[in-house]
Amino acid sequence: MSDHAAVASIDPRAHHPHRPEVNIYVAVFVALAVLTVTTVLVSYWHLPILAGVAVAMMIATVKASLVATFFMHLKGERAFIYGILAMTVFFVLFLFILPISDQDLLSGRMTHTNVTAEAEAR
């Protein structure tokens, strides 16, 4: 890769504003481990599906944001990166919402041929 600028600046740490903070890394690791255990334990309750999805996805989101914020150093990152991510998330929302709502709105028109056939067989 051609990082021209590096030619002028010999210090390997130049352009790397993220000073590592080992204590925080360890704390984040503990949090991630605890959350992982939590989500598995919760799953043993066999919650109804909607509640289960809500809890599991909430925990996963928290975990993912911890990784992104501290391990990927989004904390203290340049606004430009936030911009890229915000834009991506915006489009992801549409990618989720529109096809999924389409599936949902059309549920009355779906035919489950295999199921009816099996049900009849039983």
């Binding site: 030619v7 600046s9 340049r78 430009f80 991510l85 991506t88 992801v92």
Partner: peptide
């Protein structure tokens, strides 16, 4: 080499990786 200033303050490599990750987000989404 041009002046040692990246316009965003990010190195090309880092900007490139983040852009790549953005497309990966779309892939997994």
């Amino acid at each position: 080499a041009p002046p040692s200033e990246f316009r965003t303050g990010l190195t090309n490599a880092k900007l490139g990786v983040w852009l790549f990750l953005a497309s990966e987000v779309m892939l997994f989404a």
